[in-house]
Every structure is written in C-alpha cells, then in structure tokens.
Amino acid sequence: MSRVDAGELAGIRARHPEAVAEAAARRPRRTGLLGDHGRLMIVAADHPARGAFAAGGRPLAMANRPDLLERLCLALSRPGVDGVLATADILDDLLLLGALDGKVVMGSMNRGGLAGAAFELDDRFTGHRARDLARLGFDAGKLLLRIDYGDPASLDTLAAAARAVDEMAEHRLPVFVEPFICHRRGGVLRHDLGAEAVSRSLAVASGLGGTSAYTWLKVPVTEDPGEMRAVLETSTLPAVLLGGDTGPDPDRAFGQWRDALRLPTVQGLVAGRSLLYPADGDVAGAVDTAVGLL
C-alpha cells in the first residue's frame, strides 16, 4: 500500500480548502452505476462517523485515518472495484489523493445515530444532503433506516428518510436504502435478520417517498441464507448485497454472498470492514475474492 501523508493533507486543507471542490470539479466521471461486467462492486468506509472503529479484531482499527485511506486507495485500485461509500471527510481526502477518478462515489447521508447512544434510533441526517452530492458531482447516496417498533424515535428517522428519498429523486440521483427491523437487548441495539423481519424492512423501505424511481435497496444476508430468494421477492427495486462482517469463517460468508448474488434483483455487492481489514491482512486478496463473486 502506498503511504498517505496526513500532514500533507492537513496542510492542503489549512491553506487551500477550495482544493476539495476543485478536485471534485475535475474528477473524471463515468456514465451509469453498473460496471463493465454489468454489476456494482462498492467498498464501504462510513463507519467512523458513527464512532464505530472496530475491525479485524482491533477495537480502534478504523480510528487510524492514514491507514484507512491507504487501504481504501489499494481497494479502489483493484480491477472490478467500481467505487466507494463514505462520509464527506473521507471522500474529501480521497478526492485530494486522486483516488476517485472514474469511480462511483456514494455519499453517506445519515450518521447522527451514534453507535451505542441512547438516541441511536433518532438517526439524524448529519452527513451529505442531496444538494451536496449534486454539487460535488457524486453519483449516489446511502441512508440507513433502523426501525424499532417499540421506540418512537424510529418514526422521526422514517419521516426524514422519506424526505431524503424525495430530494434525491429531485436531483435524479440514486439513493441506496439500508433497512433493518431491530430491537434493544440488554441495552444494545440488535438487528433482526430473520426472513420475516428483513422482508418487512424491505417493504417499508420500498414505499418511502413520492417515487421509488431512484431507490435501490441494500440488503443483508438473512440468518438462513436459503430464504434469501423469498425475501428479495418482497420488492422489484434493484438491490445490492450488504457484505457484513465475515466472522471467523470468511469462506462460508463468501459462499453465502455468492449464492445471494445469483438472485434476479441483486445487482452487486457493498462490503467494508471484511475487505479492508481481512484476518490475514491481505486487502488486495480479499477485494479480488469479492470481485470474483460477481
């Protein structure tokens, strides 16, 4: 991995903050989201803005920004990787590093529901707005929609998500909605990955806003991967698979991803920590394996 000089980036930001907008303006863009293979492969790195740093068994792995940027630059350089999902601070760094040329750039929109906070489900839109994405010439946005039937804060998030879908449609920008039915257990928020809960979450997400023309779904693998076909029949919206933590058995996880990627509405894969912080430390190898699944 090439080295990233944090001091140089900070110096550019201090002396010439306009450099970010200038880099965005001259960034070569590609037409359409899907790659030459007709699929979409996105590397995700929007976790730190929620105060979530753990990766690869290291509790503060993603707190080292130069290291994260180096891993992202390496991942983005691999054949078949279409782009990145991240918050403004990380995307601004990648713009300054010239790592986003010809890539799909997806901005993370709501990051206010900090991991472990009492207000986690009141997930405010503290990240990119639709007009920010349009101004910078970015290609899409992503929002997280966590719904707890026992927490009134979920309604505020639901309403805000619907307005974000409307605003993205007004700018003709795709928005990737990542929905979960969840509940608190021992004070910790848990996602329900049962087939019924995932189906319900997809139905709710599909109906947000005044049009679904620009809405995509970001879908987790269910607890029983054999139920994915029935779950994805809940909606006709295009979907990408959420490549979550592969755990101690990455081969099994990759196999589940491969099976789900064969389903008719699934257009690609969005994966983050499992690729950027693999157990064996081989970022390029992990990314190439994921690309191979497509």
Rank of each mutant, 00 (worst) to 15 (best):
P278Y: 14
R27S: 03
R71K: 15
P59L: 09
S154G: 13
R124C: 03
A117P: 04
R30M: 02
L189N: 09
E70K: 11
E70W: 07
H191S: 13
L136Y: 01
M1G: 12
A160G: 12
L232A: 04
L121S: 09
L232E: 06
M41L: 15
R258A: 14
S108G: 06
L155D: 09
T265G: 06
G51A: 15
A279F: 12
F125Q: 10
L100E: 00
R129S: 15
L261F: 06
D166K: 08
A10R: 12
P59K: 06
K218Y: 14
W257I: 02
A153C: 07
A203S: 07
L155C: 08
L9K: 02
L133N: 02
A54F: 05
M106G: 02
L136E: 00
R26A: 11
C182R: 03
G113I: 03
R262M: 05
A286I: 14
A159K: 09
Y277N: 08
A86G: 10
L242G: 05
R78M: 15
A195I: 08
L76G: 05
T157V: 08
S206I: 10
D101I: 03
V291T: 15
T236Q: 14
R163Y: 04
T157Q: 03
V283L: 13
V165A: 12
L155Q: 06
D166N: 13
A161F: 03
V291G: 11
T211M: 10
E223P: 03
N110E: 06
S154T: 11
T265D: 04
R200F: 00
D280S: 13
S201Y: 01
G292S: 13
E233G: 11
Q267V: 11
D148F: 10
A115R: 12
D122C: 10
L94W: 01
T265S: 14
G272M: 14
V105W: 01
